[in-house]
Design a protein around this nucleic acid. Sequence first.
DNA 1: GATATCGGGATTTTT
DNA 2: TCCCGATATC
Length: 786
Amino acid sequence: MQDYLQGLNAQQREAVLHRDGPLMIVAGAGSGKTKVLTTRIAHLMATGVDAFNILALTFTNKAAKEMKERIEKVLQNSEARNLYIGTFHSVFARILRGEAHRIGYPNDFTIYDTDDTKSVIKTVVNELNLDDKHYKPAAVYNRISGAKNALVGPVEYANDYAIQQEDMRTNRPAIAQIYDAYVKRCYKNGAMDFDDLLLKFYELLKNVPESLSKYQRKFKYILVDEYQDTNPAQYEVIKLLGAMHENVCVVGDDAQSIYSFRGATIENILQFQKDYEDAKVVKLEQNYRSSKSILDVANEVIKNNKGQIPKNLWTEKGEGEKIKLVRLNTDNDEGKYVADTIQEQKLRNHYNNRDFAILYRTNAQSRAFEESLRRMGIPYTMFGGLSFYSRKEIKDYVAYLRVIVNPRDEEALKRIINYPVRGIGKTTIDKTVLVANQNNISMWEVLERAREVGFKAGTLEAIENFVVMIKSFASMLQSKNAYDVAVHVGKQTNFVKELFNDKSTEGVQRYENVQELLNSIKEWTESPDTEEGEVNDKGLGSYLQQITLLTDADEKDPNADTVKLMSIHAAKGLEFGCVFAAGLEEMLFPNALSINSREELEEERRLFYVVITRAKERLWISYANTRYRFGNLVQNEPSRFLEELPEQYVDRSFAGGGMRNQGIGNRSAYDRMNGGGWGGGQSANQAEKRYGPPPSKKASTPTSTTPSYISPKPQNKPVEHVPSADFVASDVSNLQVGQRVEHQKFGFGEVVKMEGSAHNPIATVKFELNGEKKIMLNYARLRIIE
DNA sequence: GATATCGGGATTTTT
DNA sequence: TCCCGATATC
Ligand SMILES: Nc1ncnc2c1ncn2[C@@H]1O[C@H](COP(=O)(O)OP(=O)(O)OP(=O)(O)O)[C@@H](O)[C@H]1O
């Protein structure tokens, strides 16, 4: 038997050895899912499957890299570099780079990041004479993104009653129009946003049979990690790709589904078994990561969610340390407490910096921890900040390169057309855009034909110089490599010199960053050849596509001996000896924006489950009475999740005097009062004054009332049907023909037909007042009456 | 057309 | 508190 099989238990081995046919592994945290996936790939390769025929999809680039390295280690060769392994986005982008021309995009298409995307939306909103204060680009994009991830196009979006009603409710009826214009604009710009990478790849497979069969044949084995966080678009792509061989292996944990805001749905787990009726399902139940205390606490917490797939996670490990629940006075105290404790643990229990992680709900919480760690001289790495490539000076530089590769990239063009200043100001740009829109040509083309437009002489000259310059860069790219061109661009445009002349500290830093960018391009240019069949792999175009998909996490060394700071989302899949789960406060965690439905609240709870299960040996859970928010001191009550911690594994006394210690049902809302007596000596000098009554009374059942701090939503205009007073949307995932339902606007009716895909089910309902209507269940709110 | 200053909005999570 | 973008002013 191969060595790598030795370290596996029976179920794990079964999953690894299962060769052909669909396979699903559903298992709790720390049960070795990722390990199984990795070993399975190694095993396939070791037993004759060519790496070129394996597609592995991970959640982050980091995870992909790690998996690749582990496989190399197991197999003792470098075959793993021939695997197609990466995030959905990066793998699909890579394929589209060879195929995009078949669906009307240039292969050198630009990938728009969130900033570009929001900027395009803003442009489009203004062009439609709408107010971008009301149609906030971020909000509009959320809506569009949601639609794309559910495979709902602009036409369907505009024609769907429920979607429209929702947009009416939020008083943004024009989103459909914006969506349509946005899609057209991206297409015109030769650009895809993040969601398009999934959507366009799906369309390619759906509409171009040659491409479909090419990749179906290529990918004999498909493996997907973190399956619970895939969205419908991803689901459909996997289904198409896997249809020929059906060697699809998915691995996930419904209890760790935390990306619904990105369109992820655990429906995909259920649907998998429906689509592949002969799918083998393997459960892994032994947890190898956490102490018994930690595991039991996690199991206990997640029990508060309804409808989890039942799992029986157990461990051979001993109880270990109790969980420490710590209350602090302020966010700064929390930071200080954590830093102090890390220091103490390092001394007392000989931990290294890398054994600690500080995890929080929102990135904004990082500050207090950074400050206190810095003061104590403890090295740390913070994830979730700006990516290197999203720094301004880098984006500016990159914008030049983008325009060279794809002159239709309007966002990049606008960014650099007058930077460094060359006398092409706002007036000129506005005019250019206007002419472009009137003639339905690109901005670039207008610049090329500036003579025909009638600019002032000086302006015209500036434009023509600019055009000539960009063209010379583009033609240089024909004969020179990406690095040489990039250096040349920096010189010719005066861009680098201008930065060099700025001797302020930030200026020097910016200059260094630009040098760093050039280094990275050089590395790219000189990187060893990858595979067959790739288009211009080391060119500027693929470099640009690739860096857009990098996050700051990909730039930092996860193995460095530093304390790690990151959001809980970013910590998915990772493990640490000691974990600090910070900011367990109402409004923050669960977040104020996620307590308006059971679904949202349960996702917050899953997030809590995720953070608990990151810990191997020790876990601290902390919360503060007050913290700064936008410079104002706010008070928060302890998180409702704290009430769910089983008392026997929790050490509250650690938090110092004044704490109650009363069993599980103890309502932590009452936990506040008297400010005195915090433990750990952090409380030297706080202002103990403001302990007024709590800001809102806490409802013990989260669904029943709308908390007073949520402002009431504007009500709909009068409708034909007045909804029942007790109208609540039902779970319609199992809606059947014949059931009686109530719709808020259409009134009562009976389901007469079910159709549509699994991800986009459509019910035809015959309403007493309004006749037959097609209702998209993903969006509509229906109450099932019987 | 370029630059300085002021004010408002931001924080949920990410590819 | 900080950052960006709109506006006023040169
Ligand atoms: N059979 C085994 N024997 C010993 N250790 C194991 C075994 N299987 C897994 N482990 C260890 O358990 C830990 C968790 O494994 P892994 O990260 O693969 O779990 P996971 O199920 O993917 O977790 P999560 O759901 O949190 O992502 C790792 O440190 C891994 O090395």
